[in-house]
Amino acid sequence: MIKPLIQRDHAQHPPAYTPGYKSSVVRSPRLPKLSMPSTRTEETGPVFGHDVLGPQDNNLVINYTGQSAIGERVIVHGRLLDANANPIAGALIEIWQANAGGRYRHKKDGYLAPLDPNFGGCGRTITDDQGRYEFLTVRPGAYPWPNTVNDWRPMHIHFSVFGHAFGQRLITQMYFEGDPLIARCPIVNTIPDPAAIDRLIAPLDMACAMPMDALAYKFDIVLRGTRQTMFENRPEGL
């Protein structure tokens, strides 16, 4: 059943223009967005079958060469929910990250830290019927980036998340509890609400850590919700 999306609460998100993050200055729209209720276009979205996944897609430790990547082994897991607290099942989650030294396998990354021949840096999975997902990876290193002269990104994993509706589409970043670089990061600080920043920080989850194997961090993700009332007040196609 296709339901209208609840309007987005922009207070949860960074504004477009955030001069502390210099790249946003010339890439931020300046005029107000056009607001209107969702239509079928935003309330529907692509579906991905398990057949797109390979068996090691969610295991970044070995999915590049089959040999173990270097670094601290960590499980990253959580649930994908909508704002109504319903689990979102069957949703594609893609992640990417730097290696344990803070280096990306990307032609634009020239950081001093070396590439790890056994680490590609991407993974993906599809949430189960409870909205759960999990990845095994290595803890990404912090890395410096050109913004002001000495800015460093905290350890982070990039997340690309699909819901059931194109209007729920979200890209974000997960941070690790206790990292002193989080509070200093200009990209983190594009988010004005400290409580919203906290929702991007995954706690250490010793209940899910595997003894003698891997630590665990728990990161739940919430996408926009849908209006639950059954009354309809719109013409076909909207």
Partner: peptide, 30 residues
């Protein structure tokens, strides 16, 4: 009881690694 949406963060310059890895030269995973 509405849950707040997870905040967005920029896709950054390395979005290709996660979303189009083959295009980014990372072959053999997908």
């Amino acid at each position: 009881l509405l849950l707040p949406e997870t905040p967005s963060q920029t896709a950054g310059p390395y979005v290709h690694i996660g979303c189009v890895p083959n295009h980014a030269g990372i072959s053999g995973i997908y």
